[in-house]
Every structure is written in C-alpha cells, then in structure tokens.
C-alpha cells in the first residue's frame, strides 16, 4: 500500500533539507565562481555549534521553546566569524585563479576544517535532539510526521523567497546581480566588488551553517557529516544549473522526490539514484536545468 502521498511528503521534506544546503553553495558560485568544497565543513560547524548551544540550554533548564532560536543563532555566529576569516584571510588571495584551482583551495580548507572541528569537539557524537520532538507530530494519510520537519519546509521556502526578493528588490541584491553578470564592468562602474564578495561569502556561510544547525536536532552530529553532504549539494546545484537560485530549488525537488520514490518503490537503486539523475540531466542539459545564456567573450 504505497500511495503517492507519503512519497510526496517525504520527498518534499528531503528536498527542503537539500535546498537549504545547496542554496548557499549556488549563491557563492554564482557571484564568486567558487565551487566551495568547504561548504560541507561549514555545514558541520553549524551543526556542532548548535549541538553545543542546545546542550548548554537544556542543561541550564531554560524554557525549552526558546531552543528554537538556537540554530539561527548558531548559523549567524558561524557565518559572521568563519565567513569573513576565510574570505579575507584566504580566498581573496586566490581570486583570478582558475576555477579548478579555487576548488582545490576550498578542498584544502575542507581538510583543515575537518581536523579543526575534530580538535575542538573530538570524534564523539553530539546530539541536540530536544527541539526535534518538542512540538509533537501530525498525521497525513495515516502516517505521523514531526512538526519540526514541517518547520524545515517552511524555513526552506522562506529562505528561497527572501533571497529571491533580496536579489531582485534591494540595492545590495542588484549590485550582486551586476557582479554576477559581469565582474569587470561592475568594478569599472564603481561597484565595490571586494565588499560584494565579502558579503556574499558571509551570507553563503550563514546558509551552510544554517543547514547544519537545522539538521542537528534530527541527527547525531559526527565527524565526516560535512564530507558526506558536499557531493549531495554539488549534485543538486549542478542539476539545477550552477549559480541559479530557482535551479537549486528545482534540483533539490527533483533529487528529493527521486530519492523518496526510490526508497518507496525501488530501494535497490536508492544508493546511486542521485548520480544517475545528475548524469542524465547533464547529458541532456549540459549546463543544468536553469543556466543563464552566457555572453560570449572573445
């Protein structure tokens, strides 16, 4: 009795998670042309900080509902500290290098961050489970789902809407779009590209950490969680089209729904369904589903 409703709901919950991970990655790529492999480590950092905060919150016996603010706090904390340090301290020396070299720079960063996290938190698992079960469950088609997962969907939608609005309607956003479109001309027009980069990378870091922070209550925070997630995020972003916001949303939905359908109907192919989708999409749409037409520069 596998009807379609649970497949859709499971798929959408999974897609929301994927979207929050992927959106920061695609934003940074869109503006800075860096496919940030350390994104996964920043995600893990968000999860670890959340676990620590939630642990402290409950050991002090504070109002449990207040703990819902902690993931957001952790994300902003990680973003505002790690973002500028990485961008100002490392990445700015690397601009102008080949895209592949930039990937390797962030790969090196990933290796360093993984061990740094290990030095701070050790290899033991952490959990921040309290918020996850706090709100209880609701039923759809006879199956219980947690309300926390519903919040996750809500956050994903809000992040998507906020970013779309921010890019289209605010001055900062328009500056960003200008830089995405043509960095050199933007700089010539007097846009402070350096600052745009700093802001973009910080926002991207906050989003990465937010994904980890939101997921922390439903998983066990362990080493290697960031490495596991990075290829997943890559796949989503590549399927949707690198640097495209609606692309990330569509990519997340496709991967989420395909993954969920595989689990329900064909558990055997679940392991590599995502790569199959990625290969198929790239074969028929070599630059992903949403790719801006590039101006040819000669």
């Amino acid at each position: 009795m596998t009807d379609l409703v649970p497949v859709l709901i499971d798929g959408i919950i999974y897609a929301s998670y994927l979207f929050i991970i992927a959106v920061g990655l695609t934003l940074i790529y869109g503006v800075m042309k860096i496919l940030n492999m350390a994104h996964g480590s920043l995600y893990a950092l968000g999860a670890y900080v959340t676990a620590t905060l939630v642990g402290a919150w409950f050991s002090h016996g504070l109002n449990p509902y207040g703990s819902f603010a902690l993931p957001l706090l952790a994300a902003i904390l990680v973003g505002l500290v790690a973002g500028p340090i990485i961008e100002r301290g490392l990445l700015r020396f690397m601009y102008g290098n080949d895209e592949i070299v930039l990937i390797l720079v962030t790969y090196a960063l990933l290796l360093i961050l993984e061990d740094l996290i290990k030095l701070v938190w050790g290899v033991e698992s952490y959990s921040a489970y309290q918020p996850y079960g706090l709100l209880g469950t609701f039923e759809v088609a006879g199956l219980p789902y947690t309300k926390y997962d519903a919040i996750l969907v809500g956050v994903a939608v809000s992040v998507g809407v906020a970013l779309t609005w921010g890019l289209a309607r605010t001055r900062q956003g328009k500056l960003l779009l200008a830089v995405i479109h043509d960095r050199e001309v933007s700089a010539a027009m007097g846009i402070n590209v350096q600052r745009v980069y700093l802001v973009t990378f910080t926002i991207g870091t906050i989003l990465a950490a937010l994904a980890g922070a939101l997921i922390a209550p439903k998983v066990s925070v362990v080493p290697a969680m960031g490495v596991e997630v990075i290829v997943l995020a890559f796949a989503v972003v590549v399927i949707g089209g690198l640097g495209s916001l609606p692309g990330a949303a569509l990519g997340a939905l496709i991967v989420g729904l395909v993954g969920s359908a595989a689990v329900h109907y064909l558990p055997q192919v679940e392991l590599f369904s995502i790569y199959l989708v990625m290969a198929l999409v790239l074969i028929f749409r070599p630059k992903g589903l949403f790719s801006a037409a590039e101006a040819r520069k000669i």
Binding site: P6, D10, G11, Y14, K218, V219, M225, E228, S260, V263
Partner: peptide, 11 residues
C-alpha cells in the same frame, strides 16, 4: 552515513 531516514521510516 546518510543521516536522513524520513522516507525509510515511512516505508
């Protein structure tokens, strides 16, 4: 290390 088992738990 998938970490997310929503769909699996549903099945």
């Amino acid at each position: 290390l998938a970490g997310q088992y929503g769909a699996e738990i549903s099945t």
